[in-house]
Write a protein that binds this DNA or RNA. Structure first.
Length: 880
RNA sequence: GGGCGUUUAGCUCAGUUGGUUAGAGCGCUUCGUUUACAUCGAAGAUGUCGGGGGUUCGAAUCCCUCAACGCCCACCA
């Protein structure tokens, strides 16, 4: 083979797109072209609300590193890509854009169909962008199975799931108090609310002069809808009032009828111990309303706040006022009437819509709900039971149907949440999303799919977006049909997600999968943290600290980006991202490139694919580097298998830069001068091709680019992961090499301390050891002119250093600072002495000898022996 | 009000079941570089592993406690 021309630096731009195209064209992204046991990852579908951010870069790196490793290990791998229509966030985003363009109320001005027609192209555009960005990151997913939560197949799955749950009595329609966003004009689930601490005013007052009970509230205006006064059943202050009804003519609004009821949930220690019960505008009060109804002692429900955030007609003279004005007016009236007893500042948590940012109002509405506690017909278990089982005993006590969470602490959070789960409000009043699959005609109602015939109208509401993403692991495989894919790839093997969607997504995937298939959605889930900026702040638009992953790829390389988001990161913990990290990673990429460049351009005929047995390790360095490679394979495999990406990449970096580049390559330069050339060349090529293979899952592009310089046309991506044998470890060579490295380091140290220029050759005498066979290595790596071995220290101007197995003397005519030498040796001697003392102490301890494992004691004894030998040399030296 | 996480070199972080004298990257200091790579090489400095207590032959690692920072949950109206 002719010598190759390889550029000095790796220019990622010239390679990445064409490499990705070659991968795609090869067909190996598609498991149909692969053999072996299935290994499946469903890509968490990015929202079509814009472009990819760094978090996606992290996720794609995690998924792709895992899938590439498994593919190379001979698994039939499927990484299925997709996107999420993200109902509310997408509609909110488009509405915001329209409003920025001058529209006041897009929903009102456009109406349902026209608004959806505005959202669709935006979503499509966003999808296209995102999909191309995923390719830029190198993600090896099967594009032939691309899915979208809002396409026809997924819609069919969603409708079918809804129908089954309805028929099982789990989905019901009911009047309940919902979380209402006035700004968004829609309900939210409990999980879509953020709690923000605020200061608020707590008002303490009586409803009227004839009402003997004082209550406290931060929302006086809602008191216009009060229908009861709640007290704790054991509270002696109010015991005599329980059951009585008082009337009050509040603020000229309406006449309230307030029944005093006893309820365990009332905290006698808060405020006055009496609670104004507003069933229409409080979850807890609504629960009391239901309890009273069940008891046969019902109280009324009076909505005084409407979906527009203004007071309703039932609020009398307050009707039409925004809540804040109503509050002010009512407070004014209370004061005027002398009913107000106290006003104080308190801090409280308010629920905020996480998308629209306004305070959530509790409003009674008829909505669709999913009951998580009801027993599923024929199964004797509720959805809650299934969700619990999946992470504890495994579904039906089957260990194989258990989801393993990494790190484990998130299991606890999940389970805690499962126990406190309330019914899930499924319906939304936005328009971008799967429409509730229910049709009405007069009194008739059909669920699942549109019935034949005229006159049917579909429910106006849409489904919570998590209803469709919850079914992602199987809707993507063709469910509800019994497809080959579903059989082959479900439950999926591995999933990764950020902890911020643990509740939103993990729980719902488990719920949906357990319900629809009686299977867990995946066997293992890896929880990652979020990427923060250099100062530990979240990346956000408002802070303006965002980093576009594509710009990073453009400036450095996709491999450097991948390496830098994955390294130094542990599951479940946040990490910081900044360009210096990418720079360091890019240096590593370039290092690998140049190692390869050196080997491929200087070895005349790189023999590709040699077997370990065919190699002829001739020198110590040969044996050593092969042993190190065996160790590397073992470690990297174990780390990747365990999803310890950071550790895997650290091991690879260490081997690449230190063992291979700094040591073996340098030694090889001498070895290639003589008769060991052929064997050295073979080993260089062997180690290189293995190293590229092991790097490939993490840095796929540069490894593939280098691989293409080998003689055949096989893609590295489709190459088998070479498994080496532990029996080929050469412990003797590793120990001997470690000593040699120490000796060379010692000589270099003396040179450096005495500022001997690297070019200046020195004369070295080594005492107390005989390693003449490695003379050449020491000479070439330590810049030595003459290396001799002696039994006695030489006389004359020498600087010396004591090493584990001997002493090194470096001649330094006129350069030695004898005093400095003495001080240095004296210091080292002291350190050795105290080290010996500590070892002797340990070894003199009977308990240690009897209780510590043998190998620990043996190592300690060996260390002591070595240290004593070393000390002798110091003593000897100071005497001479 | 509960719960969780973090605290290791100047900075960012590893440290796998407790076991040699605690590591990496970046930064810093010195010297060098026609010879794969200045996106480089060699050498070097820097740590009472947040504080205190305990268990153990042995603790960065396990237990208790305190502190600082961060996060999550919760219907004190």
């Amino acid at each position: 083979m002719a010598k190759q021309e390889i550029p000095k630096a790796y220019e990622a731009k010239n390679h990445e797109d064409s490499i990705y195209a070659a991968w795609e064209q090869s067909g190996f992204f598609n498991p149909d072209n692969l053999k072996g046991e299935a290994f499946t990852i469903m890509m968490p579908p990015p929202n079509v609300t814009g472009v990819l951010h760094l978090g996606h870069a992290l996720e794609n790196t995690l998924m792709d590193s895992m899938i590439r490793y498994q593919r190379m290990r001979g698994r039939k791998t499927l990484l299925l890509p997709g996107t999420d229509h993200a109902a509310l966030p997408t509609q909110a985003k488009v509405e915001k854009m329209l409003m920025e363009e001058g529209m006041k109320n897009p929903r009102q001005e456009l109406g349902r169909e026209k608004l959806v027609e505005k959202i669709r192209p935006f979503a499509e555009q966003s999808r296209t962008t995102i999909l191309s960005q995923i390719k830029k990151l190198g993600t090896s997913c099967d594009w032939s199975r691309l899915a979208y939560t809002f396409d026809e197949l997924r819609n069919r799955a969603v409708n079918e799931l809804f129908r089954r749950m309805y028929e099982d009595g789990l989905i019901y329609r009911g009047l309940r108090v919902v979380n209402w966003s006035v700004r968004g004009q829609s309900t939210s689930s409990d999980d879509e609310i953020e709690h923000v601490e605020r200061t608020a005013k707590l008002y303490t007052f009586r409803y009227g002069k004839d009402v003997p009970i004082t209550i406290a509230t931060t929302r006086p205006e809602t008191k216009l809808g009060d229908t009861a006064i709640g007290v704790h059943p054991d509270d002696p202050r109010y015991a005599s009032f329980i059951g009585q009804t008082f009337t009050a003519d509040v603020g000229g609004a309406s006449s309230l009828r307030l029944k005093v009821i006893a309820d365990q949930q009332v905290d006698p220690a808060f405020g006055t111990g009496a609670l104004g019960v507003t069933p229409a505008h409080s979850q807890i009060d609504f629960a009391m309303y239901e309890t009273q109804k069940a008891k046969g002692d019902p109280i009324d429900l009076i909505p005084v706040i409407g979906s527009d955030g203004k007071m309703t007609s039932q609020a009398g003279v307050y009707a039409g006022l925004p809540v804040e004005e109503a509050r002010e007016k009512f407070v004014g009236w209370l004061k005027k009437e002398g009913l107000m007893e106290k006003e104080e500042e308190i801090t409280q948590n308010v629920g905020i819509s996480d998308r629209y940012g306004d305070v959530i109002e509790a409003i009674p509405m008829t909505q669709w709900w999913l009951d998580v506690q009801k027993s599923i017909p024929g199964r004797g278990k509720s959805l809650r039971d299934l969700m619990r089982e999946a992470l504890t005993t495994g579904l039906h006590g089957d260990e194989k149907q258990k989801v393993i969470v990494n790190p484990d602490r998130f299991t606890k959070l999940y389970l805690d949440r499962v126990e406190h789960l309330r019914d899930w409000c499924l319906s939304r009043q936005i328009w971008w999303g799967h429409r509730i699959p229910v049709w009405y005609k007069g009194e008739e109602m059909v669920v699942g799919q549109q019935p034949e015939g005229e006159g049917w109208t579909q429910d106006e509401d849409t489904l919570d977006t998590w209803f469709s993403s919850g079914s992602w692991t199987f809707s993507t495989l063709g469910w509800p049909d019994k497809t080959v894919d579903l059989e082959a790839f479900h439950p999926t093997s591995w999933m990764q997600m950020g902890y911020e969607i643990l509740y939103l997504w993990l729980m719902r995937m488990v719920l949906m999968s357990a319900y629809a298939l009686d299977e867990i959605p995946f066997k293992e889930v890896y929880i990652h943290g979020i990427l923060r900026d250099k100062n530990g702040q979240k990346f956000s638009k408002s802070l303006g600290n965002g980093i576009d992953p594509l710009e990073i790829i453009e400036k450095y390389s996709a491999d450097a980006l991948r390496f830098s988001v994955i390294t130094g990161v542990t599951p479940g913990n946040d990490s910081r991202f900044y360009e210096e990290k990418v720079e360091a990673a890019q240096r590593l990429v370039n290092k690998l490139w140049n190692i390869s460049r050196y080997i491929l351009t200087s070895v005349e005929e790189p023999v590709h694919g040699q077997a370990f047995k065919e190699l002829v390790p001739t020198t110590l360095a040969d044996r050593w580097i092969l042993s190190r490679l065996v160790r590397l394979e073992e470690e990297v495999s174990a780390h990747l298998q365990a999803a310890e990406f950071s550790q895997a990449s650290e091991k690879l970096r260490e081997f690449t830069w230190s063992d291979f580049a700094d040591w073996y390559l340098e030694i090889s330069k001498a070895q290639r001068q003589g008769e060991t050339k052929a064997s050295t060349d073979a080993i260089l090529v062997y180690v290189l091709e293995h190293l590229l293979t092991y790097w490939h899952p993490i840095m796929p592009f540069v490894t593939e680019a280098i691989w293409s310089h080998f003689d055949d046309h096989e893609l590295l991506m489709a190459h088998n992961w070479p498994v080496l044998r532990m029996v080929d470890l050469d412990l003797e060579a590793e120990a001997e090499m470690a000593w040699l490295q120490e000796a060379i380091g010692a000589i270099r140290n003396i040179r450096s301390e005495n500022t001997v220029a690297p070019k200046q050759k020195v004369t070295v005498v080594m005492v107390g050891t005989n390693v003449e066979m490695h003379k050449g290595i020491i000479e070439s790596l330590a810049g030595i002119e003459s290396l001799t071995f002696a039994s006695q220290p030489p006389t004359g101007e020498y600087a010396s250093v004591v090493i584990s197995d001997g002493q090194v003397f470096v001649s330094l005519q006129g350069l030695v600072n004898k005093e400095a030498e003495r001080v240095k040796l004296g210091k080292e001697q002291k350190e050795t002495e105290s080290y010996i003392a500590s070892l002797e102490g340990k070894l003199a301890n009977e308990d240690f000898i009897s209780k510590a494992p043998e190998h620990v004691v043996a190592t300690m004894r060996q260390n002591l022996e070595d240290a004593r030998k070393k000390l002798e040399r110091y003593v000897h030296h100071s005497e001479s």
